[in-house]
């Protein structure tokens, strides 16, 4: 009897054992859950994306009912007209990829533009929606030699939600500069609009 009793753990010991087993189970479960959560982040990101609203894509671009091309106007035919667009008759694309800024339209036949005066001209700050854009144009020998940004968007007012998910496993690569020639370039829309606007204003100072 006494031997059997002595082999039995004391109530205190049993309680300690019970709690340590419970703690082990709880910790294991937690660790497993954390592990699964980390592994599942990609799937969660995809799941979040799959909750995005479904979209019906029109094959035909909707056209306003009455929009038809306006009667033809020849640029430059009406000299008094307010800011007449610059018309640039460009040659066929050659070996070099097109670059911003476009070459100054010195040879434009439609609108006579005087040669630019040498110097540095600063365009206005233009709201590019994602931030302000301001450029400085440098004219050398009557030609646009350099354009630099004085101000450019470095914050996004529209920055809405930033998720904490890892990226899903789509293909990924480091960007690499390409030297192949191209017909046309796709680039950031809103900023380039503002860029062109600020540049145009800087160039108009150079003309005056």
């Amino acid at each position: 009897m006494s031997q059997r009793q002595s082999s039995r753990p004391s109530p205190l010991l049993r309680a300690v054992k019970k709690y340590s087993v419970s703690a082990f189970v709880v910790c294991s479960f937690t660790a497993y859950a954390v592990h699964e959560r980390m592994l599942g982040a990609d799937a969660a990101a995809l799941a979040a994306a799959s909750q995005a609203p479904s979209v019906a894509v029109a094959r035909e671009v909707p056209m306003p009912p009455t929009l038809t091309p306006a009667p033809r106007q020849i640029a430059g035919a009406a000299p008094g007209v307010t800011p007449s667009p610059m018309q640039i008759a460009a040659p066929r694309p050659t070996a070099a990829p097109a670059m911003l800024p476009p070459a100054p339209p010195t040879a434009a036949p439609a609108v006579a533009l005087g040669p630019y005066k040498d110097g540095e001209y600063t365009g206005p700050v233009v709201d590019a929606y994602f931030g302000n854009v301001q450029v400085k144009a440098t004219i050398q020998n009557g030609q646009l030699a350099d354009v630099s940004f004085l101000d450019f968007p470095n914050h996004r007012r529209t920055s809405v939600r930033i998720n904490n998910y890892a990226m899903p496993y789509l293909t990924s690569e480091a960007i690499q500069v390409q030297s192949a020639r191209v017909n046309v370039i796709s680039g950031a829309t809103l900023t380039s609009e503002a860029f062109a606007e600020s540049l145009q204003a800087a160039l108009s100072q150079a003309r005056s």
Partner: peptide, 23 residues
């Protein structure tokens, strides 16, 4: 395009507007 191939469209480098990073 004028070579009888699809138009070659470059994607501008957002870090340097004079470069393209994809054709």
């Amino acid at each position: 395009n004028d070579e009888g191939e699809p138009w070659r469209v470059g994607i501008r480098n957002p870090f340097d507007i004079r470069q393209i990073v994809k054709v």
